[in-house]
């Protein structure tokens, strides 16, 4: 039944103009549908805003957790560098002996570098840190032993523990201290956190799909007659889906923008107490921000989720409409 146009001498060229005009028609429909779906969203501003807010809320929690983990990872990298051991020398060891022990420690396998702290230097540091100049200044004997700070080649807990055992056997060494337990704990916490963030991300991503899917399902329901008519007169599934996919993408984008805004607000809301808390530990720590890259990722994800939710909702409907 295809109504073949009469054969033309320039068949190839007419073929090309036909396919470019089809492409233009396709582009035109995309443009029309993106605008049309945006207009429909704006026609019911409150309902659209509520949908976007629901999406935003679903996105904020995993995004915030992800941000927190990101800063924890930065902290972790710093901690790796500070995975040092402190070798305390026995009492009564003089400076020359301490220097020889330091050389021996430095020569040990697995030691990157060392720093010898004489008992006097140790005392000075101690006094400074505690602000107790006067109290300790009155002590007759310096109670602090000399110590050597050792930076290991391999900061992994197992390697550090092994190195500590080796160093403990050196003569003149009283004790080797390493603060691994809390470091390990922190690492486990970070691992837990990242798994939690992933699980929440998946869960809340599904939430976004459901929110958008349900909204689009209602939109499809309200335009059912239109869909049936256009399919009767030869609309492809892609044509029918298009306006709804754009609606879904708009919802997702709007939700993502709101989520960015909420994260920014949360940041401001928490910034003062957090920096005060950090200051009380003598540290400077500022809450992580989403930044342009993070915002772009969030917006992309939310838009894609909206699009996907719409796709699922419309496809389910189209399967019903298709004549058997």
């Amino acid at each position: 039944m295809s109504r073949q146009p009469p054969a033309r001498p320039r068949g190839a060229r007419s073929q090309r103009t036909r396919s470019t005009s089809r492409f233009r028609g396709w582009l035109r429909h995309h443009r029309a549908m993106s605008l049309d779906s945006a207009r429909r969203l704006l026609q019911a501003p409150l309902a659209s805003l509520l949908t976007m807010l629901a999406i935003a809320i679903a996105l904020v929690l995993p995004a915030a957790l992800w941000l927190a983990l990101d800063s924890a990872r930065l902290l972790d990298a710093e901690l790796d560098e500070s995975a040092t051991l402190t070798v305390y020398l026995s009492h009564g060891i003089d400076e020359a002996q301490a220097g020889r022990i330091d050389e021996a420690v430095d020569a040990q396998e697995g030691v990157a570098r060392t720093q010898l702290i004489s008992s006097a230097e140790g005392m000075a540091e101690f006094q400074q840190a505690l602000g107790l100049n006067d109290a300790l200044g009155r002590l007759e004997h310096n109670p602090l032993p000399a110590s050597i700070v050792v930076v290991p080649v391999d900061p992994a807990p197992k390697a550090v523990r092994h190195l500590a055992g080796e160093l403990e056997t050196l003569s003149g060494v009283d004790e080797v201290r390493l603060d691994l337990a809390w470091l390990e704990r922190l690492r486990h916490l970070a691992e837990l956190g990242s798994r939690l963030a992933l699980a929440l991300g998946v869960l809340f991503g599904l939430g976004v799909l459901l929110v958008v899917g349900n909204t689009i399902r209602l939109a499809v329901e309200s335009r059912r007659q239109e869909i049936e008519v256009v399919m009767l007169i030869g609309a492809t599934h892609a044509f029918v889906r298009r306006p709804f996919l754009y609606s879904g993408a708009w919802y997702g984008l709007g939700g993502g923008l709101l989520a960015c805004g909420l994260l920014g607000l949360g940041n401001q809301w928490l910034a003062t107490p957090v920096s005060a808390l950090a200051a009380s530990y003598g540290a400077t720590f500022s809450l992580p921000r989403l930044g342009p890259e993070g915002s772009a990722t969030l917006l992309l994800c939310s838009t894609l989720l909206g699009w996907l939710g719409a796709w699922i909702a419309v496809s389910r409907h189209l399967a019903e409409v298709r004549p058997r």
């Binding site: 039944m1 295809s2 239109e226 049936e228 399919m231 009767l232 030869g234 492809t236 044509f239």
Partner: peptide
């Protein structure tokens, strides 16, 4: 997937006209 293109070659008039 060819059905839409087949339908485009048929004009259909309904009793209840099915206008939007």
């Amino acid at each position: 997937s060819q059905v839409p293109f087949y339908r485009r070659q048929i004009g259909v008039v309904f009793q209840d006209h099915q206008l939007l």
